[in-house]
């Protein structure tokens, strides 16, 4: 990790100016420094993103490439095991956890557009596997990676609209990622960020919880959607596909004009 941090610092540490230079360099395809290329990033695209919002995955890939990093997508990847783990089926989850470590162990950093799945690897693999794998410290959620590791807040994106940000519980309370997505959103040209001011409270997704306890889960989504509508935002953005499915599903059921978008898609979808 020190290697990555040092290189990232060398490349991007001091200022936004450097960031601009990097982007310009990346865009022209020239002047890619070996320092930047040396960071080999593995893309971890969880199932829900793969199936329902692939453009979030593309957003991460395009942005990191634009910044000059080597981005690889190990095609062998499937699931980190979280659904089984959260359902109390550790015996099945452990198989997938071991598999995940095998697939990603060669990367200097693993980046994912999902707070939930990153939390699974970072916070729960130790307990599940009996010993915390070294990889756990090299897996990052996308917004945290940009801000904390690449020291970047302005990714040069443009988005016209009034946006509110929903804190996914795993990002907020497992990974303690709260300010990073907001910093990134505030730097987007044309974007007006309005705070949700509802707690922050869970949207009610909770994986299989949303199916096992549909009434409570939906009641939570209703309140979440009401809070979103109160902000007057046109878009609600989040860093977890599960929350977006839950919120989007309720917005759609209520015929709300508010639309959902994954943070990674907003930041990098058109990069």
């Amino acid at each position: 990790m020190t290697g990555l941090r040092n290189r990232a610092m060398m490349a991007t540490s001091s200022s936004a100016a450097l960031g601009v230079w990097m982007m310009a360099a990346a865009l022209t395809g020239a002047g890619r420094s070996t320092t930047l290329n040396a960071v080999r990033i593995g893309l971890f695209i969880p199932c829900l993103v793969d199936q329902f919002m692939p453009r979030a995955g593309l957003g991460v890939a395009r942005l990191l490439k634009k910044l000059g990093h080597t981005v690889e997508y190990p095609a062998e990847q499937t699931c980190c095991g979280q659904p089984a783990f959260n359902s109390g089926i550790h015996s099945e989850a452990v198989v997938l956890a071991k598999r995940f470590v095998r697939v990603f162990d060669g990367f200097e950093a693993v980046v994912s557009p999902s707070g939930s799945c990153v939390a699974m690897v970072r916070n729960f693999y130790g307990d599940l596997l009996g010993a915390r794998p070294a990889l756990a410290d090299r897996v990052f959620e996308f917004s945290e990676f940009l801000v904390e590791k690449l020291h970047l807040t302005d990714v040069g994106a443009r988005f016209d609209g009034r946006v509110t940000y929903h804190d996914s519980c795993h990002l907020l309370r497992e990974l303690r990622v709260e300010s990073q997505p907001r910093q990134l959103l505030r730097a987007v040209k044309g974007l007006e960020l309005v705070e949700l001011n509802d707690g922050p409270t869970c949207c009610g997704f909770g994986g299989t919880f949303s199916i096992k306890f549909p009434d409570v889960s939906a009641a939570m989504a209703e309140d979440k959607v009401a809070a979103i509508e109160r902000t007057g935002a046109q878009w609600v953005v989040a860093g977890d596909a599960g929350c977006l499915m839950q919120i989007g599903g309720m917005l759609s059921r209520r015929g709300s004009p508010v639309k959902t978008m994954h943070l990674a898609e907003l930041l990098g979808g058109n990069a």
Binding site: F52, I211, M245, G249
Partner: peptide, 18 residues
């Protein structure tokens, strides 16, 4: 149990992998 209360977003036409 999901769709009784909410809509299910459609699967993306193409997966990320594709």
């Amino acid at each position: 149990p999901w769709t009784s209360k909410r809509d299910l977003p459609p699967l993306a036409a193409k997966t990320f992998h594709e």
